[in-house]
Structure formats: structure tokens, C-alpha cells
């Protein structure tokens, strides 16, 4: 594997729109560190495109945005990009961060069982976030969604900055707790609801495989 990042950014509903907008921050950090990036955006985020890119570019980091379940990660229009028993070998030996619900529950474990030099950072519970409809047209200005998506971004950003997978996971989880502290101190009407969803992501986020893996 060589240093570089493949990132999928489907955009076809509110959730994928938010994930993709916030992913631009990850790409910015990669560019600052002169890390080669191949982004599959919108209609490029398909199984065939991903397979072609993953086979030709041996980049060590894969960031997958989108919906999913315990055995699949979806791309554009809910097409499965990675499926257990179909093409999970494309992620073997790499560091994968899946911002897709529950993929760690089964798919991540399978990938690591094949080769545990890489690792899989993802969620054993469905990823949750609140968004403020006031900012639906400009997700980057949504301070509520930021409470969830900035700690989530901390995983790939920490890896890009040279941290190990375990450190990246720890940084992200600490950021979740800091945001919980912040909103609970504010004691706004939505504080407990937001804290509860943040706690879900904190408990659900796991590293499977080699925690010492580096880009």
C-alpha cells in the first residue's frame, strides 16, 4: 500500500449531502499534507467506479460515506459499493473509515479476519446526527450537525496527520465527549437530545484490527 486516500461522497438525500459537504474538510486537510486523493463524488460513487479505483490505486486510506448495514456500504442511490461475500477484499490491508451505519458489526470484522494488518474504524450502532432545517441549504453552517460531523471527521483527519488508527479513534471520541460537555453546559432545550445521539456514536464507534496502523 502507498500513502493516499480514496473517498466516496454520494449525494442523493439529506444524509449523504451532509456527509459529503463535511467531507470537503477532510479533503482540504489531505491536500494540506500533500496526500494524494481520489474522490468519487455523486454519480461516480458506484460499485464499478470504486472497484476500478481500488484495484488500480493502492492507497492505504479509504473513507466511505453513505448509508449501509452490517454487511454492506452503499454509494450513490443506495447501490451497494462494498458487500460481504462480494468484494470486501478490496478493503483488506487498508485503513478504512466507514461513516455508514453498523458496517463494523459484520463487514468490518470479516475484512480484518482475512488480514489483520489493516483496520476498520466504523460503527456497531446506527450512526446518528441531528441537523437544523434552518441550514438545510448550507450544511456547513449547521452548528448542530457540526457537533456530530466534526468529531467524525477527526478520524480521517487524525490519520492524515500521522496518527495511528487507535489514536485517531481516541481523538474522535474525545471530540464527541467535549461536544457533549459543551452542549450540556449550555442547558438548551435540545441539549439532552443532542447529547444522547452523541453518546450513541461514542458507544458505537469501534476500531477493529490493527490499532497501530498508520497511513
Amino acid at each position: 500500500m502507498k500513502k493516499g486516500m480514496i473517498i466516496t461522497m454520494p449525494r442523493y438525500d439529506d444524509v449523504t449531502e451532509y456527509f459529503s459537504q463535511f467531507s470537503k474538510e477532510v479533503i482540504k486537510e489531505a491536500e494540506k499534507e500533500l496526500l494524494p486523493v481520489k474522490a468519487l463524488v455523486d454519480k461516480e460513487a458506484t460499485k464499478s467506479s470504486f472497484e476500478k479505483v481500488a484495484n488500480s490505486l493502492q492507497y492505504s486510506l479509504v473513507v466511505m460515506n453513505g448509508h449501509g448495514n452490517s454487511k454492506e456500504i452503499f454509494g450513490q442511490d443506495k447501490e451497494a459499493i462494498i458487500s460481504e461475500g462480494v468484494n470486501e477484499q478490496l478493503l483488506v490491508g487498508r485503513i478504512t473509515y466507514a461513516r455508514a451505519c453498523e458496517a463494523a458489526a459484520s463487514l468490518g470484522k470479516l475484512i480484518i479476519s482475512i488480514n489483520n494488518e489493516g483496520c476498520f474504524i466504523g460503527y456497531e450502532l446506527p450512526f446518528q446526527f441531528y441537523a437544523d432545517i434552518t441550514w438545510a441549504g448550507n450544511p456547513m453552517k449547521d452548528n448542530t450537525a457540526k457537533l456530530f460531523l466534526e468529531p467524525s471527521n477527526a478520524v480521517p483527519i487524525s490519520l492524515i496527520k500521522g496518527k495511528t488508527a487507535a489514536e485517531a479513534n481516541e481523538n474522535s471520541k474525545r471530540a464527541i465527549l467535549k461536544n457533549m460537555n459543551k452542549i450540556l453546559r449550555n442547558a438548551d432545550k435540545d441539549s439532552l437530545a443532542v447529547a444522547e445521539a452523541l453518546w450513541n456514536n461514542y458507544e458505537g464507534q469501534v476500531v477493529i484490527g490493527n490499532g497501530e496502523a498508520l497511513l
Binding site: D14, V15, Y18, G68, K78, Y130, T134, D190
Partner: peptide, 20 residues
């Protein structure tokens, strides 16, 4: 009761594939 008391009308919750 918790949802009624704690979730304001301007927020939308996404859980997994269920958005907004």
C-alpha cells in the same frame, strides 16, 4: 415524553439510513 420535551421543531434526526 422525552422526545416531546427535548427535541425542538427545527431539528431533524438521522439514524442510519433513516434521514431527517
Amino acid at each position: 415524553a422525552r422526545i416531546d420535551a427535548q427535541v425542538p421543531s427545527n431539528l431533524r434526526l438521522s439514524i442510519g439510513s433513516f434521514g431527517g
